[in-house]
Amino acid sequence: MTRLFPHPLLTLALTLMWLMLTRFSLGHLLLGAAVAILAGLAFARLEPQPPRLRAIWPLIRLAAVVSVDILRSNWAVALRMLHDGGARPRRSGFVAIPLRLRDPVGLALLALVVAAIPGTVWIDYDPGTGVLLLHVFELQDAEALRAEICARYETRLLEAFG
């Protein structure tokens, strides 16, 4: 069973996506399942161990926090696009953040969060030291930003992936 479905969630999600993109029928169910199983097997060759998710609740809370943050920073950055170089000059800069998170799936999710929030861009991550380099559009206090990223996103990902 595990040999045929090394990544059961991926296989299930791909089958569902196939059914949603086409009209539901038995033929499409079989075809979609075949494609999904093949994709799961191919993915197992690339990535030997499947991700181990310890708890799902932190991820749901993270999604809620992130969607609020995306709205807030969208507003802030959009205003900045209109009046850049106005009364209050804007400083942007690089911030290095030491991370405790080491799980690759957790890091991938953190990258997704950082990229989805306008105003922060993931520049570089050093897997040896675990230091993440971000570029911040409107940098006021690097220390506060470091604490915020750790408290808001990293701790929840640590709870979820360990």
Partner: peptide, 23 residues
């Protein structure tokens, strides 16, 4: 897109498309 044209340095411009791709 406006920010992509208006902003002065490359690293600032890197933030501009995020508006289009997020909300």
């Amino acid at each position: 897109a406006l920010g992509l044209v208006r902003l002065k340095s490359f690293y600032d411009r890197l933030h501009a498309p995020a508006l289009g791709t997020s909300w």
